[in-house]
């Protein structure tokens, strides 16, 4: 038996919006600790790692570890049938379920709807991600990061990110011309609009802009985003999901041949 309830479906909708364009399908691994998803996009260039801890749910019960293979477009269709303020319960009866139910309850309890979704067998590679001490860790407003990725995507396919003590610079160029956005570190680190940089050594890396734009679909989840970078290893882009977990995106860099 698996059952997990959230007071408001809005969080789950935002989580799904943050991954459904990058991934077609994914295994939801459910344990007593919570729900985890790790999946690569089709081209194996980026990876999504999602964690929702059990203590962040209003109610959570997982008698035995189970893996639910989910078609994310199907789940997104079902989630769109809920109102943001609905309570949502995810329920699977068996230890090895072939279907999962979503129950939406309106705040006044006057409307209850349930949707059953077929699960699928997904045979996917799992990657071991080593703990890394990154050369630069930048925290910045998530809306600013989204704006930069969107604006610069018009100029070129590749985005160069350079980070130093002075700040972080995003650059691109293409047929139209070139573009640079520099952000300086702010003095007040506690505010939502703060830009903070922890640096061991300066870093310059090149990434496909298209994937960064996909990652910014997580912007509604968190006012801040954290970028962790070291030379010649994948970028880590991390959004917190309130106090209940986080969504991490890894993106392999482009490297000179």
């Amino acid at each position: 038996m698996f059952e997990a309830s959230l007071a408001q479906s809005a969080i789950l909708k935002k989580v799904l919006d943050a991954i459904k364009d990058l991934l077609n399908e994914a295994n939801f691994e459910c344990t007593d600790d919570g729900i985890k998803v790790q999946a690569m996009d089709n081209s194996h260039v980026s990876l999504v790692s999602l964690e929702l801890r059990s203590d962040g749910f209003e109610k959570y019960r997982c008698d035995r570890n189970l893996s639910m293979g989910v078609n994310l477009a199907s789940m997104a269709k079902i989630m769109r049938c809920s109102s943001n303020s609905d309570k949502v319960t995810i329920k699977a009866q068996d230890d090895n379920p072939d279907k999962v139910s979503f129950i939406f309850e309106s705040s006044n309890q006057e409307r209850i709807s349930d949707y059953e979704m077929k699960l699928m067998d997904i045979d996917a590679d799992q990657l071991g991600i080593p703990d890394t001490e990154y050369s630069c860790v930048v925290k910045m407003p998530s809306a600013e990061f989204a704006r930069i990725c969107k604006d610069l995507n018009q100029f070129g396919e590749s985005l160069v990110i350079s980070c130093s003590k002075e700040g972080i610079k995003f650059s691109t160029s293409g047929d139209l011309g070139s573009a640079n956005v520099k952000l300086a570190q702010t003095t007040d680190a506690d505010k939502d609009d703060a830009v903070t940089i922890e640096m061991r050594s300066p870093v310059t890396l090149t990434f496909a802009c298209r994937y960064l734009n996909h990652f910014t679909k997580a912007t509604p989840l968190s006012s801040q985003v954290q970028l962790s970078m070291s030379d010649e290893i994948p970028l880590l882009v991390e959004y917190r999901i309130g106090d209940m977990g986080c969504i991490k995106y890894y993106l392999a860099p482009k490297i000179d041949d």
């Binding site: 194996h44 260039v45 799992q126 990657l127 071991g128 890894y250 392999a252 482009k254 041949d257």
Partner: peptide, 13 residues
């Protein structure tokens, strides 16, 4: 420049 795959950095488990 060439786009690397994640398997160049993270090992399959």
């Amino acid at each position: 420049m060439s786009q690397k795959k994640l398997s160049s950095f993270f090992k399959t488990i």
